[in-house]
Amino acid sequence: MDQSTISKLFFTVSDKTDGSKYLCYIHDCAGDLNIGVTDAEDVWRTRITDETKAQLLKHYSLKSIEDCLMKLRSSCGKGKASVSVEVGQVVIHLGPSPRDFAMTLAKLDEVDGKVELKELLFRMADSLSHWQSAEGPQALHSPGKNSHKRDNEFAPRKQSSTGPYVGSRKRLPGDSLINPGTKSKRPATGVAFDDDGDEV
């Protein structure tokens, strides 16, 4: 895994006490790996030192720090890792036990925090743009969705050839316009009496 891939690692991690979500990210700055956590308002960050790398390798039983960072992301996604917010710092716990490895991140001041959030936002946007260009136009559509089906969602439905035909039938002469299927009533004409045939 190259450094550009590491700088595109973003994942969420939860606070076990209240269930709130935090965004965790890895950033390569001048050859130094930094890990940060933010709630979109405050930012906490620390440098991944050689000692931290050795502890990560031991905790995950891996030989590559890149693999360890991928494992960290997977652990957060599966709910195995968590954070706890303390005064002026955030602690990332890599397991439920207090004996599990934990990393402490210091809170940035307001000015540095805004700069960090701005850079993070654009790194995420660049990462998304790169993914969309690599995947092509189909990346804009969710898998399993049929765009043609969506276009025809409000089109008139066609009658199935196998089912009974329920379309409008042809009106026959004399049928009522208001109540199809019934004969319209003709106006009464009265009774014609033929007086010519009567005999006195």
Rank of each mutant, 00 (worst) to 15 (best):
P96A: 08
P164R: 07
Q3W: 02
V85C: 07
Y22K: 02
K63S: 14
Y165C: 14
G19W: 03
S160Y: 00
R45M: 11
E41Y: 00
C76L: 06
V191K: 15
G136F: 06
V43S: 05
K145I: 13
G174C: 08
G77W: 04
S97H: 12
G88T: 09
G36Q: 01
D196L: 09
K158W: 05
L128R: 15
K80D: 01
P187W: 00
L62T: 05
E86W: 00
C24N: 06
N179S: 12
L72G: 07
R123H: 10
G19V: 04
P143M: 05
L120C: 01
Q132D: 05
T12H: 11
K80Q: 11
D175G: 12
K8G: 12
S133T: 12
L177R: 15
S61V: 01
G174I: 06
Y25K: 08
V37H: 05
E51D: 15
K80G: 04
K71D: 11
S4L: 12
D28P: 00
V13F: 01
E41F: 09
S75I: 03
D50Y: 06
A102L: 02
V13Y: 09
T104V: 14
T46N: 10
L23Q: 07
Q89P: 06
S74R: 14
L62W: 08
S161L: 15
Y60T: 04
G88Y: 08
L33V: 10
W44L: 04
N34M: 12
L108V: 04
L108F: 01
D18R: 07
R157M: 10
W44R: 00
E66W: 00
D112S: 02
Q159M: 11
R123A: 10
K170W: 09
K21H: 09
M70R: 14
Q138C: 11
G167F: 05
K53L: 04
D100S: 02
M1F: 00
Y25A: 09
D32H: 12
D32K: 12
P143V: 12
W131Q: 14
D32E: 07
L121F: 09
C29T: 12
K58W: 09
I178V: 14
R45P: 01
L140Q: 12
P180E: 00
L140N: 11
R169M: 15
R186F: 05
G31K: 06
V43F: 00
E66A: 03
G190K: 07
S168R: 15
G167V: 02
T5P: 02
A81Q: 00
D175T: 14
V83W: 07
L121G: 13
L94K: 05
H59Y: 05
V200P: 13
C76E: 06
Q55A: 13
L120G: 02
D28H: 00
S184D: 14
R186W: 03
A54W: 06
W44V: 05
D175C: 13
D126T: 13
G79Q: 06
A81G: 01
S160D: 15
E153T: 06
F11H: 12
R186T: 09
S7D: 12
G197L: 15
G31N: 13
K118N: 03
V43D: 04
C76P: 04
T52A: 09
Y25E: 05
F101E: 06
Y22R: 02
P143K: 12
K63P: 01
M103K: 08
M124F: 10
D32W: 04
